[in-house]
């Protein structure tokens, strides 16, 4: 059986908000290491990889591996009933038909109990090779969100160019063109507000802004975001949170 108690409902609520528009149904794979999810969007352009490590829960118990097939829209509806500060407990039997969710208020004067039907999802897992990326860019998550939103007003796609001079986000469309260049900064007082660029070679890749804007729905989960790129491979966008991560992979566009 699974029993996982999470001190802050907000973590799960924000995580769902960050993935439910990209993925409709997904298996939450539970093991003694924690709860993970890997799913592609319908058009097979983007992939979401979530890990909530066992040590992020207190307590966490999972006797045998379980795949909980969940409609993310349904889970999101149930989680709307949880307050951000509530303590959430997830429970499932072995070979379960339902997932049980309990929301307790901080001072335990209100306990809400929900049961959600599970579904059978035959989901293939993709092998994601360990990659030493040529460019690793860490920046404030809010900055990345703003850049993607601003450039999506100009064009459907953005070219990200990482070089020793900085990282340049550039878009060109019918109304004109625009770009934002970030230089490396160091803010010892507020490391989350710094931009760092680690580069072994220059990288230039073009991506759909629709997907990037979608990824930035994870902004409330983390102060910083890391973009990892190599030429001709998918972009990795990572939001690290306490007790896990939310990663998005996005296939690049290629020139005709």
């Amino acid at each position: 059986m699974l029993e996982a108690r999470l001190a802050q409902a907000a973590v799960l609520k924000k995580t769902l908000d960050a993935i439910k528009e990209l993925v409709t149904d997904a298996n939450f794979d539970c093991s003694d290491g924690g709860i993970s999810l890997q799913a592609m969007d319908n058009s097979h352009v983007a992939l979401v990889s979530l890990l909530l490590r066992a040590d992020g829960f207190e307590p966490y118990r999972c006797d045998r591996n379980l795949a909980l097939g969940i409609n993310l829209n349904s889970l999101s509806k149930v989680l709307r009933s949880a307050q951000n500060e509530d303590i959430i407990t997830l429970k499932a039997a072995d070979d379960p038909d339902n997932l049980s969710l309990t929301f307790e208020s901080q001072n335990q004067d209100r306990i809400s109990e929900y049961e959600m039907k599970l579904m059978d999802i035959d989901q293939e897992h993709l092998g994601i090779p360990e990659t030493a990326y040529a460019a690793v860019i860490t920046m404030p998550a809010a900055e990345f969100q703003r850049i993607c939103r601003d450039l999506s007003g100009i064009s459907e796609s953005v070219t990200i160019d990482a070089s020793k001079d900085g990282v340049k986000f550039a878009s060109a469309g019918d109304i004109g063109n625009g770009s934002v260049t970030l230089k490396q900064t160091h803010n010892p007082e507020e490391p989350a507000l710094s931009t760092s660029i680690e580069l072994s070679e220059s990288v230039t890749l073009t991506f759909s802004l629709k997907y990037l804007v979608n990824f930035t729905k994870a902004t409330p989960l983390a102060g910083a975001v890391t973009l990892q790129m190599s030429n001709d491979v998918p972009l990795l966008v990572e939001y690290k949170m306490e007790g896990g991560y939310l990663r998005y992979y996005l296939a690049p566009k290629i020139q005709d």
Partner: peptide
């Protein structure tokens, strides 16, 4: 112009 590639091109099923 540019064409969107699918992820399956890069990542293979396990």
């Amino acid at each position: 112009g540019s064409q969107q590639r699918a992820l399956d091109f890069f990542f293979k099923p396990k």
